Simulated scan of single mutants.
Amino acid sequence: MQQTRVTASEFQAAFGALSDRARREPVVITKHGRDSLVVMSAEEWARLKRRDRRAGLTADLSDAWIEAVQSASVPSEFERRDSELK
């Protein structure tokens, strides 16, 4: 996803235009050279919040799911990524 990056001063100076842009793509606001805030549309925020609700407790998994996870293997094309997690 494309994004715009501006300083806090730039955002304040062009609030209207950058607010309009934030409705189309995230606008990252930096402070002292570091990312500080992200302004985005309310629709994008709602979409991200809906994704949070997809999480569940492992204690709620069925025995079949637990067995499937325990017996799963990493496809060969992703083995290098698997080693990064260990």
Score class of each variant (00 low, 15 high):
residue 9 S to Y: 09
residue 9 S to G: 08
residue 10 E to T: 10
residue 13 A to M: 10
residue 14 A to D: 12
residue 15 F to C: 14
residue 15 F to E: 14
residue 16 G to M: 05
residue 18 L to K: 01
residue 19 S to G: 07
residue 19 S to K: 07
residue 19 S to W: 13
residue 20 D to A: 12
residue 23 R to Y: 05
residue 23 R to Q: 14
residue 24 R to W: 06
residue 24 R to N: 07
residue 25 E to N: 06
residue 26 P to E: 03
residue 26 P to N: 06
residue 27 V to Q: 01
residue 27 V to G: 00
residue 27 V to A: 01
residue 27 V to P: 00
residue 28 V to L: 09
residue 29 I to T: 01
residue 30 T to R: 05
residue 31 K to G: 15
residue 31 K to H: 15
residue 31 K to P: 05
residue 32 H to V: 06
residue 32 H to K: 11
residue 33 G to K: 03
residue 34 R to T: 02
residue 34 R to V: 00
residue 34 R to W: 01
residue 36 S to P: 05
residue 38 V to D: 00
residue 38 V to A: 07
residue 38 V to M: 06
residue 38 V to L: 05
residue 40 M to W: 01
residue 40 M to E: 11
residue 41 S to H: 02
residue 42 A to I: 11
residue 42 A to D: 15
residue 43 E to C: 00
residue 44 E to L: 12
residue 44 E to W: 05
residue 45 W to A: 04
residue 45 W to K: 07
residue 46 A to L: 12
residue 46 A to V: 08
residue 48 L to P: 01
residue 48 L to Q: 12
residue 48 L to W: 06
residue 48 L to I: 02
residue 49 K to S: 13
residue 50 R to S: 15
residue 51 R to Q: 11
residue 52 D to I: 02
residue 54 R to Y: 05
residue 54 R to M: 10
residue 54 R to H: 06
residue 55 A to Q: 09
residue 57 L to S: 13
residue 58 T to R: 13
residue 61 L to M: 14
residue 61 L to P: 00
